[in-house]
Amino acid sequence: MTLAFLNLTWPTFANGLALGGVYALMAVGIGLVFGVLRLVNFAYGQLIMAGAFALAFGSQWGFPNWASILFCFGVVLGLSVLMDLLVFRPLRTHSPAVMLVATFAVAFLLQNIALLAFGPLGKSAGALAILNAPWDIGGVFIKKIAVISFATAVGCLVILQLLLTRTPLGLHMRAAAMDFRTARLLGVRANWVISGAVIVSGLFAAVSAVMLSVQELTVVPTFGTQDTILVLAGVVLGGLNRPIPATLGGFSIGFANGILGGVLPSNQSQYLPSFLFAAVIVVLLVRPNGLFARGGGTVERV
């Protein structure tokens, strides 16, 4: 069975959804931290890289899958919190440009630590790779990981939405993203809100690490970097400061990436990054505040 136009097949469509879902998670992870700290965390991809290495090592050491995943979560969360304490907080009052370049530095640092420790060839992602086997859904073979990725992403986003709308911490995080100063004057604790955002963002990075490392099979020091740049573009495209536009932006670019990657012949798909970024630039020129942003949001100067 083939979808009517192009040579888009259901499995490709499913892969697009899956990649869109993971990118949406990453987008929200980046967006949450931006909301409270006004900081674009370029090192987000390196958190994912670290998580993917943790998974790979877990498999290599013979951990059961659940333990590898737990290990991955531990590493990513630990690193997120460390990054927050050592870099984000000391730089909180500096200009967005300095903060962005600082996260650039952290990304570069972590990538080179990985290079030094694990070498340029990387590691095989390990035991979870069996999830690349397909499920037979009414005669269409769709990779298990595609279904799992999409379902997990949706689940995570629903839980996040509940957290943001139904709990005091979520309310505080939303208020801090809109007007941190006033929120603090009302008694919203800055440290809690920042920690909350960093931890949720780290959790999403860990989930993304699991999903991406299954799909990409090998983990190298540059793992997640290209994805992060695309997600950043998607987030800015959607509108950074709001979870839902950010989600949509991240999803769109992931979906486009997944679909086009499957549909284009290889002599064209090598230019896929160019297509995506050209599209991003065109959209930004037309709507500098983002595709899904309402009205004129404040623009951070970088």
């Binding site: 160019s274 970024f277 930004l284 020129l285 100067r301 970088v302």
Partner: peptide
């Protein structure tokens, strides 16, 4: 004509496209 993050991401895009091509 762009400013802020949009400009930052757009210049990133230029880098990626140039490198890709």
């Amino acid at each position: 004509r762009l400013s802020g993050l949009a400009a930052g991401i757009a210049t990133f895009g230029v880098l990626e496209i140039t490198n890709n091509v």
